[in-house]
Simulated assay, not measured.
Amino acid sequence: MRLQFAPLNVPLRRRLQTAAVLQWVFSFLALAQCCLAAFVLLALSDWWLLALLYAGWLWLDGDTPTSGGRRSQWVRSWLVWDYFRDYFPLKLVKTVDLDPKKNYIFGLHPHGVLVAGAFGSFCTESSGFSAQFPGLRPHLLMLPFWFRVPFFRDYIMCGGLVSSCKSSLSYLVSRPEGGNVAVVAVGGASEALDARPGALTLQVQNRKGFIKLALKHGAQLVPVFSFGENELFDQVENPTGSPLRRLQNRLQSIMGVSVPLFHARGVFQYSFGLMPYRRTVSTVVGRPIPVTQTPSPSSEDIQRLHSVYLQSLTELFEDNKHKYGVQDHRHLDLM
């Protein structure tokens, strides 16, 4: 492989963008492990009392990730997120106004490798969420495991991340005052294994838990599609049935998280690395689907609303794909 190095005269602005994305990739891949190691070292040091006090805080604060989290507008507005946005760049696109007196479940597609579009749009203010949707508070759902990691949990909650367990989603969309948005990456970890340039495969046919909760609490459903999300990373070939895919599926069943073998570019060269490509990601928020509250929805109710949701998602994609470089003959593959 011939290395293509970055030129030495790269403008400072682009270097800052790269640094912003580098810290984000580090946060996704290694910050949790570093925080856990720091806690263990603190517990084994002369400062063990601080570790004990923090452990007590964890016990007292254990329900926060399932009760709306603890967002920080200050953290969400850090200047670093503006550089993060401009690296790709990321764009948040509104199609209609949303009533701030209602609660919403945003069904996010596709998951991608590291959900860059969702993070930039819903965990920071760099894409202007609060300006475009005044009165709404977005919460991106994340696997419960990560909220057990000391220090790391407090950091990610500042951005609006909350646990993806059923009780957490129910808490958000059952608030009578409205204004809550629960952002659910419907395809989940398994969909990340299909994330590669050109891929339009969505794991959605058997994902109906969010549909049931929308009916139970009367939350409005909104399909969201991030055009360009799958273009950010390449991935080692892992077709269904291959030894690598079977191993990845096995690891996912054990750990609850997928292990996509992704790669893209580096910091100082463009040939390989874990930095995403500089490609535009446009996160388009569709029209809300009216939902009538049904405290005990039947399987027929769930299937009916699920079919409506899939139709709305398909229409959102078809109506917008030509704006974001998707060829007319390309269509979603709903698995």
Rank of each mutant, 00 (worst) to 15 (best):
V204G: 13
L36D: 15
Q132I: 01
F119N: 03
N206Y: 14
L215W: 13
K323P: 05
Y87N: 00
S77I: 13
Y270I: 13
Q205V: 15
D333P: 07
S167T: 06
L44D: 14
V173M: 01
F133Y: 03
P7E: 01
L221A: 01
L232T: 06
L193D: 13
L141M: 03
S312T: 04
V326Y: 05
V186L: 07
T283V: 15
L92S: 00
F39D: 13
N249W: 07
L22V: 00
K216H: 06
Y83L: 09
K321C: 08
L332H: 10
Y324C: 12
S121T: 03
Q132N: 01
L22I: 00
F272P: 14
L169Y: 07
F5N: 11
I302H: 10
A43W: 07
K208P: 01
L44Q: 15
Q205M: 13
R207H: 07
L332D: 08
A6P: 08
V10L: 02
D63F: 03
G325N: 04
W57F: 15
L251Q: 13
E125K: 07
P276C: 11
V93A: 06
A214H: 09
L29N: 13
K101N: 10
G218L: 08
L36K: 14
E231T: 06
G117P: 05
A32H: 03
P150F: 02
V236R: 12
V149D: 02
L141Q: 01
Q23K: 08
F129I: 01
L334G: 14
L200F: 08
L36I: 09
L22R: 09
K321H: 05
V224N: 05
G228I: 08
R304L: 09
D82A: 15
A30K: 05
Q293M: 01
N9H: 09
R76I: 12
V75K: 05
E237A: 06
S163D: 00
S298H: 13
W48H: 09
C35Y: 13
R287L: 14
V284Q: 15
A195M: 10
R279A: 14
L98K: 07
S282V: 11
L8G: 11
D99F: 07
W81P: 02
V115Q: 10
N249H: 08
G286C: 06
D99R: 06
F233K: 04
N9I: 05
Q269H: 09
V291W: 09
K91H: 15
